[in-house]
């Protein structure tokens, strides 16, 4: 199919063909199964572009929002500005002194694990498939902290839908909670190796958590560095930066 044929499909879906072109296209569509399949694919790709466009547009709108909030904020005058500068210096010196007196001693890996670890907050919507219904049930147990009961249901979900990355992540977290560290790492590794677009970052974070719990700080650090490199806008970025700093102390 040429780029012009594909363009005609797009123009049809965007409702830009005139009446004659539209009628002719619909006739071809009625007689050509390949064209119908291609049309379906384009519909999906256009939906994807809608979401990608939303992400970009939202960033643009956020910038406008920040600029507008900035316009409304009061600017301090020059005289007050000096008072602020002096106050900030005094506060900084005082804070440094207090921090030096009360700063925490370096924490052990299990202590760091206890500070940073919590089960990932996942949403389990229900769709009308067998796998999704089981997943929704497993999700309720997971959210209630009943990891031992949730685990077999996540396993069952994966036996029906092996590419369900949400179920795989949740299963790994259940195994981590149940101290089945090697099994948990197997689930996380599968997501990391597949560069899973939804949960690749989370898999790296929970692998690092597992390594930390096992006392392997060097491996935990390596995983965190990889996560920070690959997912710079990720949900665990701040935590991972802080944890790396704590591990280096």
């Amino acid at each position: 199919m040429t780029s012009n044929d594909q363009h005609t499909i797009d123009e049809y879906l965007l409702n830009r063909l005139d009446a004659t072109e539209r009628q002719s296209f619909e006739q071809s569509l009625a007689n050509d199964e390949t064209l119908r399949k291609e049309l379906e694919e384009h519909q999906q790709l256009i939906a994807a572009m809608g979401l990608i466009g939303d992400v970009q547009m939202k960033e643009r709108v956020k910038r406008i929002h920040q600029a507008e909030l900035g316009r409304g904020a009061k600017q301090p005058n020059q005289a007050n500005l000096w008072k602020w500068v002096v106050a900030v210096i005094i506060l900084s010196v005082a804070s440094l002194g207090i921090w030096l007196m009360v700063r925490p001693k370096a924490q052990t890996p299990p202590q760091l694990y206890a500070s940073y670890y919590k089960p990932y907050d996942l949403n389990f919507g229900s769709r009308n498939t067998d796998a999704s219904q089981i997943l929704a049930e497993a999700g309720n147990l997971y959210k209630a902290g009943k990891f031992a009961e949730a685990l077999p249901l996540f396993e069952q979900t994966l036996s029906i839908a092996p590419s369900d990355s949400k179920a795989r992540l949740a299963m790994g977290i259940c195994q981590l909670e149940l101290k089945q560290y090697d099994q948990a790492l197997t689930q996380f590794s599968a997501l990391i190796e597949a560069k899973d677009p939804l949960f690749g970052e989370q898999a790296l974070w929970y692998s690092a958590m597992t390594k930390l719990q096992q006392g392997s700080t060097t491996e935990a650090k390596t995983l965190l560095v990889k996560m920070l490199t690959d997912y710079q806008t990720g949900v665990f970025y701040k935590d991972a930066t802080q944890l790396l700093s704590d591990l280096s102390n």
């Binding site: 979401l51 990608i52 939303d54 992400v55 677009p197 949960f199 970052e201 989370q202 997912y231």
Partner: peptide, 13 residues
Amino acid sequence: LEHEQQNAFARLL
């Protein structure tokens, strides 16, 4: 969309 979905689309971009 969930956080991870938003991030996935941003990375796709």
